[in-house]
Amino acid sequence: MLVSVYRYNPETDSEPYMQDVEVSLPEGKDPMVLDVLNLIKEKDQSLSYRRSCREGVCGSDGVNMNGKNGLACITPVSEVVSRGKLVVRPLPGLPVVRDLVVDMGVFYKQYQRIKPYLQNSSPAGGRERLQSPEDRAKLDGLYECILCACCSTSCPSFWWNPEKFVGPSGLLQAYRFLADTRDEATEERLADLDDPFSVFRCRGIMNCVSVCPKGLNPTKAIGHIRDMLLSRAT
């Protein structure tokens, strides 16, 4: 199978290029894209990419495969290959460090900006804070985010304003804490999001939903935040 991989080494290349590699896949199997990258790397160790858990929970290997973002480790080649060719590029919209490795600094910065930790200053006593299963269920579809950046880097609004628009991932996390009945900082959190960029740059095109490898729905979470901001203003 023909694989076209994005290559760039800042020390030796003046500009990035696509490298075509012929890879022979094990017969009768449908390997994951990560397996293919590993096969290439066994032959050419200069290819760099991130990987860790290889089962879709650590979020290391977000890449762009034939035009769509996803995790290389849980994307079968057959699912993305088109006309016999697999094209692997780094996640779009972030600076490339090398080959498929992008600088995720601005993505993490937006995550930190939403204060991604529980804020509750009331004494908890010697045991856990109670939470009903119904209240806990409000966190489903939110806490599972693995910070792979597939969503935010598929979002044009994030491409244009990565410093100002929190992006789908960060907003999903923001809502995870807004929705948590144990959190007491709702007002501060909302006040910090009430500007024309942070939340409202979402135009609802739902690229984030289409690419999320965990099947989460950031657009819906953003809608909830907008509702909360509206009811706070009125």
């Binding site: 999001l193 500007d195 409202f200």
Partner: peptide, 18 residues
């Protein structure tokens, strides 16, 4: 909170509502 001088409304919500 992101602030910007050339901003029409007071806030994102105001812009959105307008």
């Amino acid at each position: 909170m992101v602030t910007n001088v050339l901003n029409y409304g007071r806030s994102g919500v105001a812009d959105w509502v307008v």
